[in-house]
Write a protein that binds this DNA or RNA. Structure first.
Lengths: 68, 68
DNA sequence: ACTCAATGTAAAATATATATAACATTGAGT
DNA sequence: ACTCAATGTTATATATATTTTACATTGAGT
């Protein structure tokens, strides 16, 4: 399970190297959670996914991709 | 928490009254899970959300909406 | 070389999604 | 009226996401 890719690392880079901690703060999770999601250790809840996409101003499907 | 709306009921209707059980079968969860998601009792995992959207041939954000 | 911020990582605890089983209700079709 | 599929609903159990705490590593800047 969990074949969901994400572009979080790239998007943080493009957002001026936003740190994992800052992203976590802005969506209301810890930096460890961001790290785990970013590395694909598990996939976020739908709400966290929406919040992350919102931070980067992208539609959810540009941040997370589900490969069947 | 859980201010995520969804259009599952409508989409099931438009798909010829697809039952909760059939939708559950097609994405690999039980009918009770579909019922709970549909009623907003909790929001699905990102993977379930992608699978549901895929069944209806819609982008995820047309099936689930996050109201801040 | 030192410092410090950012990140990796992991164990234990908590929250939430989901499964399973069971029973009740509703509505359509006959 | 009967039947049966679909749905509502609830309790208990399991899986997974997330928190918290803690310690290690890496890299940039000085």
């Amino acid at each position: 399970m969990a074949r969901i890719a994400n572009q979080i690392r790239t998007l943080r880079f493009l957002a001026g190297e936003m740190t994992q901690a800052e992203l976590g703060d802005r969506i209301g999770v810890t930096r460890q959670t961001i790290a785990a999601i970013e590395q694909g250790k598990y996939s976020p809840t739908l709400e966290s996914a929406f919040r992350i996409a919102r931070v980067f101003g992208k539609p959810l499907e540009e941040v997370f991709q589900w490969e069947e």
